[in-house]
């Protein structure tokens, strides 16, 4: 499936939502919500990996501009986008992917969706927080931040999926 106008619009919707609203939402000084990763995770299965990484880099870079942390989100996003296709291949639901499949909750159910998203979100957050902390100096506190943020982001992503179910294409 080719990327269409819908993807371009939702790129900006996710981006603005992240930097204008979710940037201010932090629970208990440790749980952050990076909903913009949902956009990256919902790109069609058969998208070219080069394009995937390009989009990941662009998204991360713009988020970085607002978060005053140049390169940080871009690094984590490119990493996630590289890992994404390998991970999608190893968690293929029964019957494999159709043409034009979108890896959303509608495709394989809640359980499959969690198996697909959580490790990638964890990878993204771990990259983000450990690089920001400048190494493993504050290992346990940073790990706590990573875990709480992963749970928070996953919850918000699930809610978003229930509220706005993506069409099965």
């Amino acid at each position: 499936m080719r990327l269409n106008i819908f993807h371009i619009i939702s790129f900006f919707v996710f981006l603005l939502y992240q930097v204008l609203i979710l940037q201010n939402v932090v629970l208990f000084h440790s749980a952050f919500c990076f909903l913009y990763i949902l956009y990256l995770l919902l790109l069609p299965v058969e998208t070219n990996p080069l394009l995937l990484m390009g989009i990941g880099f662009a998204m991360g870079f713009v988020v970085d501009l607002f978060y005053e942390s140049l390169g940080l989100h871009a690094f984590a996003c490119v990493m996630v986008m590289y890992a994404r296709n390998y991970w999608l291949n190893s968690v293929t639901p029964q019957g494999g992917y159709d043409n034009n499949a979108v890896p959303s909750m509608a495709l394989g159910g809640v359980q499959w969706f969690l198996v697909y998203t959580m490790p990638l979100i964890f990878l993204h957050h771990a990259m983000l927080f450990y690089i920001e902390a400048g190494g493993f100096g504050m290992f346990w506190f940073t790990l706590w931040k990573v875990i709480t943020s992963t749970i928070f982001t996953t919850l918000v992503i699930l809610i978003a999926q229930f509220l706005f179910p993506s069409r099965r294409r």
Binding site: F57, D64, E68, L70, G71, A74, V78, M79, Y82
Partner: peptide, 30 residues
Amino acid sequence: AFFTFLVLEVLCAWLIISNNSYQGAQFFNS
């Protein structure tokens, strides 16, 4: 795919490192 990945990550790492010093001037910022 792997080489693009490598190039992009090196670019990001360079951005992170060159903007690391908290007093240094930088081009992209809020």
